[in-house]
Design a protein around this nucleic acid. Structure first.
Lengths: 257, 257
DNA sequence: TATCATTGTGTCGTTAAGACACAATGATAA
DNA sequence: TTATCATTGTGTCTTAACGACACAATGATA
């Protein structure tokens, strides 16, 4: 299908596929080494940035919709995702933006489900950005990882959604284990600590960190040290997946200073 | 407007007023003395029970919708409410139920926005049930307070919504102050403790409870004791509204054993 | 006036967490 | 070959929060 036809079809018939007035926006955080980024899409023509989002199929659980969006923008499966808040400002309509978009495509349209107001549900995900080749959606010209320190202007309340998600991500470090899919199979304690420090954007005490993480029992200590490093070789660990997944559901419950 | 006309109008034209495919369900907990109840509506004809719910007006914030629903079912204003979860099971459609309802009213209808699937956002509220004269909505024959220990069969996933809300209410005791609007202007420490014990459904240590509550600074100790009680007269307290409201936003952060 | 259930206040031990010290390690440089 | 030194592994000390518990004060009732 040509681009124009795809767009026209989406605006005229999309409401036969999707629920109306409700959308899902995903705040996909990307980590690697010591960097934390977030995936943003740049709209065609307008150039403004937005969170990857989408709609809920008529016969689809909202969680599935979030996973589908993640899969379509990153290619990743089986990533832990969580709904964290509903954003329902009455001004959440992209009517003007969408009409301008259609005009640029060369389509005239008076009415569309896409012109209506959307209540949106925010989801978070945390992935390794080196394992992702970002894929823009049909409305976007680019899909890129952005440093949290230098974010571009964003559409509607997406900046607020992002900020809320980051808060939630940080709070969740106290309740949910983090690191699986983000670190190599075998990793060292300093590597895990850097992950936490990067998310929190502050330093943690090395010794107290180790004590707390060990206390959660989500790690298995391996009989192996990292080779070829200057100075003392750190021990390798790997996640104890059984305890890790239990903690994902049940929670950890410690406090990071 | 006659009942039949009101119903017919709602099913045929309601989507001009409200957002589609999204609803709000309120879990309104009621407290008094040492009892915790929840407000449920009994559907006309079918007799099954449901949480008070409703829809979001096209130009209304979702929080306002929740407050409007609370106001309409209880008459209460200015009650602290919180969204706590989105329920989006693909099977969340009341098509069969609504068609049966219409049949009982004496209306035939093939299509309606009310037959579609709804994603619903759960809200919690906690009120004094002696200050409420429950008002059924147009679909309901009765509106009653139910003990949490003896709940009737409920529509769709409303029982699950209620259980999730109760969990959230209990967890929130550690983060948000509770009691304003539920206790008299002046109250005693044992009265406040009973509120907490009733919500948690377990006993707390009297002395440790006092220590923690005092630590939050949400109370002002009055120079007055309760009169006419057998045994030692307990002191009166009242809420320090400034600190109370600050804690409502910012959180408390203690742990009840 | 004694009783007694209840309230006000304090103490003790345990645990979790923050701050910090010191020995062990192992590649690198002298 | 040996000393250096940044980094890691492990432990201790102190403080704060909290659960368990003791005891005196109160005030209507018997």
């Amino acid at each position: 299908m040509s681009f124009e036809k795809e767009i026209a079809s989406h605006f005229t018939n999309g409401h036969e596929l999707y629920l109306r007035n409700i959308s899902v926006d995903c705040v996909i955080f990307g980590f690697h080494q010591n960097e934390l980024k977030v995936l943003l899409l740049q709209a065609k023509y307008a150039g403004i940035w937005a969170l990857p989002g989408g709609f809920i199929l008529k016969d689809e659980h909202m969680d599935e919709a979030a996973k589908r969006i993640l899969k379509n923008r990153t290619g990743l499966n089986n990533i832990f995702m969580q709904q964290f808040h509903v954003f329902s400002n009455p001004g959440r309509s992209t009517k003007a933006i969408n009409q301008q978009f259609l005009k640029n495509v060369g389509i005239e349209m008076k009415e569309s489900w896409m012109f209506e107001r959307f209540v949106t549900v925010g989801y978070t995900a945390l992935v390794d950005f080196t394992k992702v080749e970002p894929i823009p959606d049909v409305f976007s010209a680019a899909s890129e990882w952005h440093h949290l320190q230098s974010l571009p202007e964003m559409i509607l309340d997406h900046r607020n959604i992002l900020d809320t998600a980051l808060q939630q991500l940080r709070t969740n470090l106290n309740y949910h284990p983090v690191g699986y899919n983000l670190l190599p199979e075998k990793f060292t304690m300093p590597e895990l600590q850097i992950l936490y420090e990067t998310i929190l954007n502050r330093k943690l005490d090395r010794r107290n960190f180790q004590r707390k993480i060990i206390g959660t029992k989500i790690l298995k200590k391996l009989d192996e040290t990292k080779k070829g490093v200057a100075h003392k070789a750190p021990n390798y660990y790997q996640f104890d997946l059984k305890n890790y997944k239990r903690a994902l559901q049940g929670g950890l419950g410690f406090q990071l200073s």
